[in-house]
Amino acid sequence: MAGAFWGPKVRTFHGRAFDVCRAPSQNTMRRWRSSDYRGVGVYFGGRGRACRSQRVLNPSWMRAVDGMGWRVLPVYVGSQSPCVGSRHKKKVRIGRYPWQQGVQEGRDAVRRAGALNIQRSSPLYLDMEAYNYRKRKCANTTLAFVRAWNREVRRHGYVPGFYSSADSGVRHMEAARRAGVRDLPSVMWFARWHTKAHLYREPALWKYAWHPQRRIHQYAGNVKERHGGRTMVIDRNLVHAPVARIG
Rank of each mutant, 00 (worst) to 15 (best):
150 N>V: 03
157 G>W: 05
166 A>E: 11
241 A>N: 11
197 A>P: 05
240 H>K: 14
201 R>Y: 10
149 W>H: 01
205 L>N: 05
197 A>N: 03
127 D>M: 04
187 V>P: 13
155 R>C: 01
154 R>I: 02
235 D>S: 05
148 A>T: 05
236 R>F: 01
219 Y>I: 06
133 Y>T: 00
244 A>D: 06
221 G>T: 06
162 F>A: 10
173 M>S: 06
136 R>Q: 13
137 K>P: 04
150 N>H: 02
140 N>L: 15
196 K>C: 00
204 A>M: 13
196 K>R: 15
235 D>V: 02
157 G>F: 06
220 A>R: 13
214 R>T: 03
211 H>M: 09
220 A>G: 05
207 K>H: 12
240 H>R: 14
148 A>G: 08
217 H>A: 11
160 P>N: 10
187 V>F: 06
184 L>I: 10
203 P>H: 01
193 W>T: 00
224 K>L: 04
218 Q>G: 05
124 L>K: 08
241 A>L: 07
196 K>L: 01
242 P>Y: 09
188 M>G: 07
243 V>I: 15
181 V>K: 06
203 P>A: 00
218 Q>T: 03
227 H>W: 15
161 G>I: 07
155 R>Y: 11
130 A>K: 04
185 P>A: 10
210 W>S: 06
199 L>D: 14
169 G>Q: 06
131 Y>Q: 01
178 R>P: 00
138 C>E: 12
226 R>H: 04
136 R>V: 08
182 R>F: 02
194 H>W: 13
190 F>P: 02
184 L>C: 08
194 H>L: 10
151 R>Q: 14
212 P>E: 12
138 C>T: 10
134 R>W: 14
158 Y>G: 02
148 A>S: 14
222 N>G: 15
131 Y>C: 01
207 K>Y: 05
179 A>H: 10
134 R>D: 11
232 M>W: 12
198 H>T: 07
149 W>I: 01
127 D>E: 09
231 T>P: 04
152 E>A: 07
150 N>R: 05
156 H>P: 04
245 R>M: 06
165 S>Q: 09
196 K>I: 00
172 H>S: 05
214 R>K: 13
204 A>N: 14
216 I>R: 09
231 T>G: 11
151 R>C: 00
220 A>T: 03
229 G>W: 11
238 L>C: 09
125 Y>D: 03
162 F>T: 07
245 R>P: 01
195 T>M: 12
245 R>Q: 14
182 R>T: 14
142 T>E: 04
142 T>H: 04
176 A>D: 09
188 M>E: 15
229 G>E: 13
209 A>H: 15
175 A>P: 08
147 R>N: 07
172 H>Y: 04
218 Q>C: 05
229 G>Y: 14
173 M>G: 04
241 A>G: 13
139 A>K: 09
145 F>C: 02
198 H>M: 07
167 D>W: 13
144 A>G: 00
206 W>M: 11
222 N>L: 14
171 R>E: 03
148 A>L: 12
204 A>Y: 13
164 S>A: 15
236 R>P: 00
180 G>M: 08
137 K>V: 10
155 R>D: 07
215 R>D: 09
166 A>C: 13
192 R>S: 13
129 E>V: 01
226 R>W: 00
170 V>S: 03
147 R>M: 09
226 R>I: 02
124 L>G: 06
125 Y>S: 02
133 Y>V: 00
211 H>R: 11
